[in-house]
């Protein structure tokens, strides 16, 4: 401190102090200023407003004008409340074409999507603005780089195969509902489904990021894997295999037996 104080009368001391003050003040401002810039905030507001316009036209008949859901007299709902479901749920449901539903039904099936990417982003922004919820995952969230297929398989068989089948081929639930096949589903949508629990699927957001990436990697490996054991018959297990075995296999054997026992062509009386 002594050395510093000896220079306090130096001609340049005032300049140095002013410069230091500027740097500190600028640094502090950079550190504490609001994270979102003014311009992008205005853009968000616009996106949310656009999303609300789309929502009122396309979604509110079931989900209510303010996404609060419409309850029926019997305690069910025409459409559940979307408050707190988050942008990930909107992106999953609308980007896979499940929403809007073609008609009220026990299950919203995957179909050609109705909204384009910008409209989906607007809808997601609107629903996300209602209450905090899971956000749309970034590509690195569901990237399978360095993921463990073996570990993913263990998680998949423990948590997913009950409904989605050991090969991800899907399966039946109660009352005409079903778990859809997982083949050809984009990693982003698999991630969002685990995060949000669409329709009857339970929420698996408790799986940590690595677990989810491992599961996605396992599913991708399942898809890439050639059929070493011959035709998989839809990977449906003993039902299709038994059906093919009994109808196809035994049928061929019956035809063979008929051919063997057939008396065959005869030359006719004139040769006797």
């Amino acid at each position: 401190m002594k050395k510093l104080s000896t220079h306090r009368r130096h001609p340049l001391a005032g300049l140095v102090v002013v410069l230091l003050g500027l740097v500190v003040a600028g640094g502090l401002y950079a550190a504490v200023r609001p994270a979102a810039a003014e311009g992008s905030q205005a853009g968000d507001q616009e996106l949310i407003a656009e999303g609300r316009r789309l929502f009122v036209v396309g979604c509110s008949s079931c989900h209510g004008l303010n996404a609060e859901g419409i309850e029926t007299k019997s305690g069910g709902n025409n459409g559940p409340s979307l408050i707190g479901v988050g942008a990930a749920a909107v992106d999953f449901q609308v980007d896979t074409g499940r929403m809007p539903m073609a008609r009220p039904d026990v299950q919203a099936p995957r179909k050609e999507k109705v909204y384009n990417d910008d409209e989906i982003a607007a809808l997601a922004a609107y629903v996300a603005s209602l209450a905090p919820g899971p956000a749309i995952p970034a590509p690195e969230d569901y990237s399978t780089e360095g993921a463990s297929v073996v570990r993913g398989g263990e998680f998949f068989r423990t948590n997913c195969t009950a409904c989605h089948n050991f090969a991800g081929a899907g399966g039946a639930l109660a009352d005409g509902r079903y778990a859809p096949p997982l083949r050809g589903v984009e990693p982003k949508h698999i991630y969002e489904a685990m995060e949000t629990g669409p329709q009857q699927m339970p929420v698996f957001s408790w799986l940590d990021e690595q677990d989810k990436r491992d599961i996605i990697a396992y599913l991708q490996r399942l898809e890439e894997q050639p059929a070493y054991g011959g035709p998989s018959l839809g990977s449906r297990g003993p039902v299709t295999e038994g059906l093919w075995g009994w109808v196809g296999g035994v049928g061929i054997l019956v035809l063979a037996a008929v051919w063997i026992a057939n008396n065959g062509a005869r030359a006719g009386k004139k040769h006797q």
């Binding site: 570990r151 263990e154 998680f155 423990t158 948590n159 629990g197 339970p202 929420v203 698996f204 957001s205 408790w206 677990d211």
Partner: peptide, 19 residues
Amino acid sequence: DVSGEPIRPEELSVGGQIN
């Protein structure tokens, strides 16, 4: 199951299921 990690109640959201 599989990982053997203990569970805090807040990890499980409504509609969630853990084996």
